[in-house]
Write a protein that binds this DNA or RNA. Structure first.
Lengths: 418, 418
DNA sequence: GCCAAATAATTCAATGACTGAACAAATAGC
DNA sequence: GCTATTTGTTCAGTCATTGAATTATTTGGC
């Protein structure tokens, strides 16, 4: 169940606040409360929860219903004496978000509706490394067009798109470095400019956001339907190791959007040389290639998800070398994670990506290191758990990030429809 | 020059937005623009910059002037034809913030006015370690009362207070752990409840906020008057090593307010045992005691600021052991900092606290490690610089954090005065 | 079956903050 | 002295929320 990105704290507004701003803000407030409700709330419930009068809530809800953002739920349960309440839910036939992903050996497209349901999901297996970025993106545009058509058949309108890539992406969508794709300074928006638009244009929702895969996977995990903390460290273990840092439902992005490169935190300062130019990086101890090497599988050249499956099989079969390799990787990971927890005060660590199927073996050493080294572990233990979502986390997170923006500013969508 | 904490992004409001919310938000907007201006802006300037009409700006400014938040500057420079503009500045005779600090060997009180000027600053030298928390706080209340009287003599009204302590503080002001003070689970607000109020009560400004010293020092540094980035890692090197993580003018606090314990990031996983129970923590390589030990000064039992001064003297005199000790500490610090920069994408590192006077010797090895290990250093170099503020950074940051809250919600102050 | 109580949702006139156009204030240049 | 320009104020209109009254709809008691 997606919600918009947190709530406004006490800060100065970004610009003039006008008469019309009232309705815009209250549209967002009411929509957010509907999204966050455990059961479909009535207008009277919403009035009580928001502090707005029932008259105002009725007017706001009327707009939301007219704009296909909200619908009345049925049937209505009986509550004893009094007029029956009409529950309100997010509509499944209005706007939706388009998520896209370009990863080492697959392209993916996904449509998530306002209520958070995945309404379309396509994966195209392909080795992207030999492809020029423009060619890879052209194929992705094909996937996007098919997704858009399918969504339209289902009565949905795509309101914006987000693309997940495994690398450093700045705020303008420039992919500064994605080593696993072989991309360097790839201007994705510019390369896509010659193609037809991916979605409708909606005020307040960017046509395309390009974001780091680990960040979007963390976002997907946040909304995966499990009630859990809104603050956690989500680690995607692949060839590279990326992290999404989630605090109170908001992604920490860093000064330029390049945060989360946990795989290049030194775990042994004078240790193994790393492709980044440093020594002793976590990636050299807990990254996919390091684990395969330690397990005696070096040179197998397995695709990313096959590598994790292979390691899982061997571990389940009790293969000594594999178990030892995972223990060593888990210990290195745990040392790094403990430091990160001391620095960032996050009390949940989610093992995602290639680490998710390996969690039974990685979790014990991570927990041991965390328990030993985290200052606050004695009175506030750290949870380490596998991710709920699998390889679809990033593309679902990407689509969901669009939904989040619509929910944060429903007035933009309503203006588009008029 | 203090400003409030950033500007509102596109998020749902925290509660109902009412007719009166318009004026509240526009008061904050106009006041923030006055605070941020390089030269005193006129009403017409503010209208152009905010997008509000001149009529509205005049009405808002009239409220701000009546509330002693803003005053008209004089003399007025001539601009050619047209009515002379009246520049507007933050008032120096209205509300102010009270900052307090309890550190290992001193207590301090500080008053910062709305324009960011320090109007009162007192330091009381004392060894706090033998004192019970209640006794230390009682002495601090004495300092606060004197500061309040002095402020009143200067025509200022204290609108709130913030206390800096060197430890883990949660959002309710409970000091979970401050090893250097010997404090564990100290409920500061409860201990202060029996004393008279420190300041006036102003809606929207907490009576007392207790916060981590490193966080508040970072806040002080942000506003120290140098034009610089609003995102940086501010490291306070003392017995313990704490960090304030500043992103776009907002402090990262973690899930429970316990962030910044950079001294307990492992730099050698199987290295020296640490008092926290782990091994190889940065503090054992770059903390004050480790540096003193490596320089041959172990057992000298020097007060914190004297230790840094002593090390500085020896380094300036070319003492081999000291120079080597600082190089080793700088290298360990640099390894950790590089990892932190890769994780958090911060492009400026500020050496504060006991590290500030030692920056000439620490900076080169830190820079070397950062240049080698930070993924993005090749195209976006990391700046490493000494802090502008000295030991007063935390107490000034504490007072300034109150000013920030007033600026963010001037309506609370205006309501108080009516 | 009717009435009273209870709860949900709508109607309607009043309020307050911003707007845009007009006006007033103050200067420089011809 | 008049015009052009810029700053700041005045004033009637607009709009979104409010609070009280009204309408809609149910249950339970007589």
């Amino acid at each position: 169940m997606w919600q918009c990105q947190g709530v406004s704290r006490t800060v100065a507004p970004a610009g003039a606040v006008r008469q019309g701003s009232l309705r815009e803000l209250n549209l967002a407030l009411v929509l957010d409360r509907i999204a966050a409700a455990a059961r479909p709330p009535s207008r009277a419930d919403l009035a009580a929860r928001t502090g707005l009068t029932r008259a105002t809530v009725s007017a706001v809800v009327e707009d939301l219903i007219a704009g296909r953002l909200v619908s009345e739920a049925d049937p209505t349960p009986r509550n004893g004496a009094g007029r029956p309440a009409r529950g309100l839910v997010l509509a499944g036939d209005g706007p939706a978000g388009l998520g896209l992903e370009a990863n080492v050996d697959y392209l993916a497209a996904c449509v998530v509706d306002l209520a958070g349901r995945v309404r379309h999901h396509t994966v195209l297996r392909a080795d992207l490394r030999p492809l020029a970025p423009a060619d890879a993106l052209a194929r992705l545009v094909g996937l996007a067009a098919a997704a858009r058509a399918d969504a339209a058949d289902q009565g949905l309108t795509l309101a914006g798109a987000a693309l997940a890539v495994p690398g450093l992406v700045d705020d303008a969508g420039l992919v500064r470095l994605a080593p696993n794709l072989g991309w360097r300074d790839v201007d994705v928006p510019a390369l896509l400019a010659g193609h037809p638009p991916l979605t409708e244009r909606v005020d307040g929702v960017p046509a395309l956001v390009v974001d780091n895969e680990a960040n979007l996977a963390a976002l997907g995990e946040l909304h995966a339907g499990v009630a859990g903390p809104a603050s956690f460290l989500h680690i995607s273990g692949e060839v590279g190791i990326g992290a999404g840092i989630m605090l109170d439902g908001t992604l920490f992005r860093g000064a330029r959007g390049w945060s989360g490169e946990i795989g290049h935190i030194p775990v042994q300062p004078d240790g193994r040389p790393c492709r980044c130019g440093g020594r002793g990086c976590l990636e050299q101890y807990a990254g996919q290639e390091a684990v395969l090497l330690a397990a005696g599988l070096a040179g197998a050249d397995l695709p990313a998800d096959t590598a994790a499956a292979r390691l899982t099989e061997l571990a389940e079969a009790g293969d000594r070398a594999t178990l030892d390799a995972l223990a060593e990787a888990g210990t290195a990971l745990g040392v790094t994670v403990a430091g990160v927890v001391n620095l960032l005060d996050l009390d949940t660590v989610v093992l995602g990506g290639g680490y998710a199927p390996l969690a039974p073996w990685l979790r014990p050493p991570v927990l041991a290191e965390v328990s030993r080294r985290v200052l606050t572990a004695a009175w506030s233990p750290v949870t380490v758990r596998p991710a709920v979502l699998g390889s679809e986390a990033a593309v679902v997170g990407a689509a969901g990030s669009v939904v989040r923006r619509i929910l944060a500013r429903p007035a933009g969508w309503l203006a588009h429809r008029r």
